[in-house]
Design a protein around this nucleic acid. Structure first.
Length: 498
RNA sequence: GCAGCUGUAGCUUAGCUGGUUAAAGCGCCGGAUUGUGGUUCCGGAGAUCGUAGGUUCGAGUCCUACCAGCUGUACCA
């Protein structure tokens, strides 16, 4: 006691990591079920891989910096091998595909898993979070990207995000590269690595929706000061080059065919450009067959994405109307994104294997659904709560609870201490909809008293007099044992909890 | 990483130009109510004022450093 607080162990949580309580867990579980049903509807099969991988297996495709460990949680094992927590599910997939050469192609798999990134957390951004991916390995057909767009749309709608509230934006890295070429920006040096100018330009374009055109122009030129006065160095392009890029960014995305036509004018002189346009046109053709119009999927040349390994079409999905309870617009960034990465498997096998896929950020999307009040969250799994007001009836309470469970009702039997008012308060706080009361009175009559706690909660605000409330018990009824299950189910049905 | 701002009970905050026992609301626990949730009332627990130095007779208040958080920005395979 004399030492005081200094010697008490403080419970602490690592920054960007979370404890997941029932409300969040159950909501996420629901999301997973919805998404999985869509993935399986399209015939994707599950795969699970370890949380840890060898760093070289994860990070070979990082060419920008020598320090492959940036942003990842890594350590050495007993054999001095560098090991890391995976930061996405795509790298493990390419490892699996390269390792199990007997896999029949194309390989269409889905994978749910936790990934870790050692970076700054923010709203809907954590250092440990779930991704739920689909990928098609071994197909170079644009059918693959078209189906993935279709899957994305179906997932969003299964998650109660209606048409018009989300938008899939598609671009093509080939077109971006062609644009840079046409604008006179070298996109790679002699060794094939992207140049500083190229990377800075891509990053600037990527920020269009956040910084606006003027911010992007600053970043393409000398640089930009943020509101705290901090300065970011720009790409130092010539004004002719900046004009050229602006023309590209101004391409309208309202109509896919029109966008293709406009883009074609800009990149028609290059072979990659023509290829890229052709790919978009193929995607558009299939989307039209699937009756997916511009309300759901647009071609948007401002989408750049993951600056490194994408080689073809890329897509990202945004929530178009995400407002919090104050009605303020909240930007959540991309919630479902991906693209084609034809070079990823090659680093293992030396053989080019085309692949494309997309990943849904479940936690970020859940956060968005929460903020915009689009998800009803519950923290109880119990549907019925059995109070224990009489010690002598313990056996009776167990019997009652057991019979309810056998009848298919999730039932919790109170095993804390406290009088009836404490017990009801407990049930109310844990969000259990129905409570049962069984005392000597009920036992003698062969009845049980049922309280509709949700209804009681609703009408409680209107009642001022405690005595009246207690006498009338408006949210309570006493029923015979035979009718008990039916009556409980009636109440649950009212709340859609059966 | 860089920049700006902020650190007072579990949470939200008050605390005057430094002045002695650091205040309140919410939440939590108990009681009024031994068989009834809400409201109300009563009582209780809970803070070495982010940490360490310094200035001063005296520091939650002023100075310095560090730490943490928030916001912006950069990076984000």
């Amino acid at each position: 006691m004399t030492q005081g607080r200094k010697y008490k162990l403080q419970p602490r949580l690592i920054k960007g990591f979370r404890d997941i309580f029932a409300e969040t867990y159950l909501a996420r579980q629901w999301m997973i079920e919805q998404v999985r049903s869509v993935y399986e509807k399209y015939g994707f099969v599950p795969l699970e891989t370890p949380a840890l991988e060898y760093v070289d297996n994860l990070g070979k495709h990082i060419q920008e910096t020598d320090s492959a460990e940036e942003g990842i949680f890594a350590f050495r094992d007993d054999d001095e091998e560098l090991i890391a927590l995976r930061y996405d599910l795509t790298a493990p997939l390419s490892r699996v595909f390269a390792q199990y050469t007997e896999l029949t192609r194309p390989f269409r798999r889905y994978q749910l898993g936790t990934v870790w990134r050692d970076e700054k957390p923010g709203l809907g951004r954590f250092r440990e979070f779930y991704q739920f991916d689909i990928d098609i390995v071994g197909s170079n057909k644009m059918s693959a990207e078209a189906e993935i767009c279709s899957v994305i749309c179906e997932c969003m709608e299964k998650l109660n995000i209606k048409r018009g509230e989300y938008l899939v934006r598609v671009s093509n890295r080939k077109i971006v590269n062609a644009m840079m070429e046409s604008c006179g920006i070298d996109h790679s040096d002699e060794k094939g690595n992207p140049t500083f100018k190229c990377l800075t330009t891509l990053r600037a374009i990527d920020k269009l929706d956040r910084l606006g055109m003027s911010g992007v122009v600053d970043l393409l030129g000398k640089g930009r000061k943020d509101e705290t006065g901090d300065f970011t160095k720009g790409a130092e392009l010539t004004s002719a080059q900046i004009d050229c890029i602006q023309k590209y960014l101004a391409v309208s995305s309202e109509n896919r065919q029109k966008a293709c036509d406009e883009l074609f004018e800009i990149v028609k002189d290059t072979e990659v450009g023509q290829e890229g346009i052709d790919e978009l046109r193929q995607i558009d053709n299939i989307l039209q067959v699937l009756k997916i119009d511009e309300e759901r999927v647009v071609f948007d040349p401002t989408i750049v994405r993951g600056l490194n390994y994408y080689t073809g079409p890329v897509f990202e999905t945004v929530l178009t109307t995400c407002k919090n309870e104050k009605g303020e617009e909240v930007g959540f960034g991309s919630v479902f994104s991906g693209g084609r990465y034809d070079g990823l498997i090659e680093r293992f096998t030396g053989q080019k294997v085309p692949a494309t896929g997309a990943s849904i950020g479940l936690d970020r999307l859940l956060e968005a659904l929460k903020v915009s009040g689009r998800i009803k969250q519950r923290k109880a799994t119990a549907q019925v709560f059995v109070t224990t007001m009489d010690k002598n009836l313990t056996a009776e309470y167990h019997k009652l609870a057991h019979s309810l469970r056998e009848a298919g009702l999730n039932t919790e039997l109170f095993m804390g201490k406290g009088k009836l008012n404490k017990q009801l308060k407990y049930a109310d706080r844990w969000d259990i909809p129905v409570a049962l009361l069984l005392g000597s009175n009920e036992l003698a009559e062969g009845t049980v008293s049922i309280k509709d706690l949700y209804h009681g909660r609703e009408i409680a605000t209107e009642i001022a007099d405690r005595e009246v409330w207690r006498k009338e018990q408006p949210a309570q009824m006493t029923v015979s044992r035979e009718n008990l299950v039916v009556e409980i189910k009636n109440i649950l049905e009212k709340y859609g909890l059966n």
